[in-house]
Design a protein around this nucleic acid. Structure first.
Lengths: 191, 191
DNA sequence: GTCTATATCATGATAGAC
DNA sequence: GTCTATCATGATATAGAC
């Protein structure tokens, strides 16, 4: 019988390596080696590098959507839900200080490569953006919801960028607190 | 007008291409071709790719320092000086929406390449950070000055990151205004 | 599905003529 | 200082055997 796991294994390893090493500098040999298959077998599953990138982006989209669903189940109040988003900076702190934000760095790399999949990568941002927007709407922020969502996204991107440059844990914690303070003030003003 | 020496031309072209295409995907042939010299001549000036990267970082450090000096000459009040920093997001808007922040994207790429020059790239951030810190000290923010400087840096990084992903000019303008509002409130509280 | 072998190409880097 | 010619390597990608 076949090993239906091989393709999924490739995608998961590629997801990790694209994050840690970047898309362009990750070679097929890196992925095949980490999975434990030959390059030839790799090409049986993915014909081109863009094919594996498309699969990785789809994988991230699905994983992100599942995470957002989980946050909705974990908390009812918009404030708590948004706080969970802000605190991924702490939950993923070690990896962010080493490799940055997976979404932001992918968008940045694809932009410099002038890669046709930039819109697909941006969709991951959109998942967060629209989910955050819905939370702000539920919190009564009405038509300001989208710009508040973008503001939160902006802060998380900025913190991730400097966390990568300075690897300063205290900075991350402080800015997470500041973002939550901003959130509370914003929600208080909306009610 | 004096024609710059070949070496300086190489550095300026490499500076631009490293920004627009990324360090790793910029080949010597790209730089040599843009300058109009042969690859052999290129190697006469720079033996390895790290040599040219070191020269580009040194070039950026010098240019940044000169820009900060200019801002100090242009304005006396810390508030105006810091505002000039915030508004580079607008001054360089087109390039930022296409290629991101030159400093943040370089740090991000070098981190993924596990490149030994990460500390040198971070020095460019340090120039801004310490310059901003001095402005906040001059504005009477005392021991909070460094964390306020990092907060401004964080916002500029976050805006640049989302500007690249969404290419939304209105978002950039709005967040620049929000950053200046934050600045004014912070300075008012300090006095 | 998996493998080995190989084609093809771009890259960083060197040697040596002028 | 500048050039042409060349090398060594590693990358994507293909062909075909088992």
């Amino acid at each position: 019988m076949v090993r239906p796991k091989t393709r999924d294994e490739i995608v998961q390893v590629a997801d990790r390596l694209f994050y840690e090493q970047g898309f362009d500098s990750t070679a097929f040999a890196d992925i095949a080696g980490a999975v434990g298959i030959s390059r030839g077998n790799f090409y049986h599953h993915f014909k081109t590098k863009d094919d594996i990138l498309a699969a990785v982006i789809a994988f991230r989209l699905a994983r992100t959507a599942a995470m957002l669903d989980g946050w909705e189940r974990n908390a009812e109040a918009p404030r708590e839900r948004i706080r969970q988003f802000i605190e991924i900076l702490i939950a993923n702190e070690a990896k962010i200080m080493q490799f940055g934000c997976p979404v932001g760095t992918l968008c940045s790399e694809l932009a410099k490569l002038d890669h046709p999949f930039q819109p697909q990568a941006r969709e991951i941002f959109d998942l967060f953006r629209h989910w955050l927007t819905r939370q702000f709407v539920a919190a009564g922020c009405g038509e300001a919801a989208d710009r508040l969502a973008l503001h939160i996204l902006m802060r998380s991107q900025g913190v991730a960028s400097l966390a990568l440059a300075y690897r300063d844990e205290a900075f991350v914690r402080r800015e997470v607190e500041a973002a939550i303070d901003w959130l509370d003030q914003t929600l208080a003003a909306a009610v």
